[in-house]
Amino acid sequence: MSSAPDRAVVIGASAGGVQALLALLPALPADFPWPIFIVLHVPADRSNVLAPLFEAQCGLEVKEAEDKEPVRSGVVYFAPSDYHLLVEENGDLALSSDEAINYSRPSIDVLFESAADAYGEGLIGVILTGANNDGAAGLKAVHAAGGVALVQDPTAAYARTMPQAARQACNAALVLPLERIADYLKGLERE
């Protein structure tokens, strides 16, 4: 579909992720031109509060992703709990209840790998704080498809395992402190 956006941002976060995203997302302008897809690991019974929580803090529209939903620019989509979120090449979102990957459903790898197929060099992948290895393979796929790979500086992250694993899997990833990531994304927009 030609109307689907040709760039997008994918973000993965786990332990400490709510705080990190509360620092990152509100710093993006209300007219941010690309869709943002997020997998955040949280206990299943708490996940449906994510979209309202962030919507109240952000200039951007924030919602939980629905199956077969056409992607729109400037919207933040959270993966629903207990489902994987994928992006189709035609620009629709897709959910799956396939088994957990690395004990995670939603899985950051599943989102990042499908988005890398869909957006190629138009994709920006961001791995934030977390205490497991999810997202490392995904970030590598983002880079391999020509996209931009970003990692939160592990030394300053709430939990460093996830950004560290992502950096190890993807040497080319740019390591940034959390407070610089929003600026970096805004800078890409001006390119």
Binding site: E88, A94, S96, D117, A118
Partner: peptide, 9 residues
């Protein structure tokens, strides 16, 4: 079938 999932499988 939705292509992204079938591809993974």
């Amino acid at each position: 079938y939705a292509r992204a999932s079938i591809k993974r499988r």
